[in-house]
Amino acid sequence: MNKYINTIKLSATKAFDGGLIYILGQYLLELAKLIFLILIWESLAKQGADLGIFSFNELLIYSLGAAILAEQLNVVTPATTSFWEGSIISRYLRPMPVLMHLSLETIGSWLPRIVIFSIPTFTTILITNIELLSYFTESIGHSLISLTLSISLGFAIDYIFASLVIRFKNANYTAYSIRMALITFLSGSVIPFDLFPYQIGKILQILPFGSLASAPLLILLDKGDAFELIALQMFWNLVLWPLAIYTFAKSKERMVSYGG
C-alpha cells in the first residue's frame, strides 16, 4: 500500500517543482473562464432568455461543478506526455503495472489543484450565495457514484487515446490538441447539452464523452433520470475498459520516442 501512497505523494509535490507562479497562472486562467461563463449566464438570464431545464442558479452550479472538478471530468494521464518525452520507458522499470503507475501519478497530480483552486473557489462561491449549498446535499449519493464512473471512464478514454498517439508517433502534440478541444466541447463541461441548438445535445449525451462531464453534473442538479445516466456510464465503462487494456497492450510494441 505504501508504494501507492508514495507514488501519489511524489506526483502531488512534483507540481511545485517550478514554484507557485508556475501553476498559479493556469489556475487564474481557469478562474477567469469561470467568471466569464457566469457573467454570460447572468446576461442571458437578464435578457429573459429561455434557459431550458435550468434556472440561473442551476447554471451557476453546473459551471462551478465543471470548473472545480475539471481534472476529474476530463482525465489526462501522463501516458501521452511521457511517451513524447521518452520517459515512459522508466515506468516499465518500476515494480508496479504501468497503467496502475500512470493512474496513481494522475491522482497525485490532482491534489495541488484541489487544494489551491477547487476548495477556495467552491467555498467562496458558496459563501456569496449560501442557497447553492442545498444542491450539493440533495443528490450527493447518486452524484458520487456518477463521478466515480466518470473518472473511471476518463482513464479508459485517455489510455485509448494514448494508444492512438503511440501510432501517430511524432504527431502527438497535434493529437493531444485535437483531443483536448473535442472532449471539452463534446463532454458538456462548458455549455450544458440542453442549451445546444437543434437536437445536438441529445446525440452528444449518449456518446461516451457525454458520460464524462454532463452526466455527473446533471445528476448533481437532479436533472434527467439518474438511473438511466448511471446505467449509460456503466455501459461505456464495460465497453471501453477492455478496449483500453487491449489497445494499450498492443501499442507497447510500437513505442518509438525521440524524447522531447
Binding site: 446576461s43 442571458l44 490538441s177 473535442l182 466541447f185
Partner: peptide
C-alpha cells in the same frame, strides 16, 4: 479544431438564443 473550439461555445449559444446581451 483547437482554436475553433474556443469560439464554438459562444457560437452555439448565439445560435440557440438569437442574441446575447443585445
Amino acid at each position: 479544431v483547437s482554436s475553433l473550439a474556443t469560439v464554438t461555445g459562444v457560437f452555439l449559444l448565439a445560435q440557440r438564443f438569437g442574441e446575447i446581451g443585445g
